[in-house]
Amino acid sequence: MSDKITKEEILRICNVQPKKCMKCGKCSGTCPAYDEMDYHPHQFVYMVEHGQIEKLMASQSIYKCLSCFACLERCPRNVEPAKLIEAVRLAVIRQQGKNHMTENDVPALLDEELPQQAIVSSMRKYKK
């Protein structure tokens, strides 16, 4: 890893204002992937604000977010945690050799019925 990813870089990618957060935890209260995550949506908001980007980049949570937008829809302060999670994921996979998944991984994950959409979207989400 060459340059350290800064808080400013994350915020530039997603245009989120973590300071708007009032720390109510509703995002994490509504998240359907909560149990699969090591850091939870409200922690993304807090940790990005406090510059703890590396921990988040190393977190499995960025691949567990279901992009269901429940946190974004229900946040009383329109903080949009889902955008932050995506920005951290992008910061990771945009680095050389940091793809979470590539074409080579796909065949092993395929089954008869799997729709094209699932494959395309995982490439879009996890690979640069």
């Binding site: 109510c24 935890g25 509703k26 995002c27 209260g29 509504t30 998240c31 409200h42 429940a70 229900r74």
Partner: peptide
């Protein structure tokens, strides 16, 4: 200390999911 994300009506119960 936390907020409820969703209340689901499940039969006679109200399933409350929060943080």
């Amino acid at each position: 200390k936390g907020m409820v994300g969703k209340v689901s009506v499940e039969g006679k119960k109200l399933h409350v999911q929060g943080s």
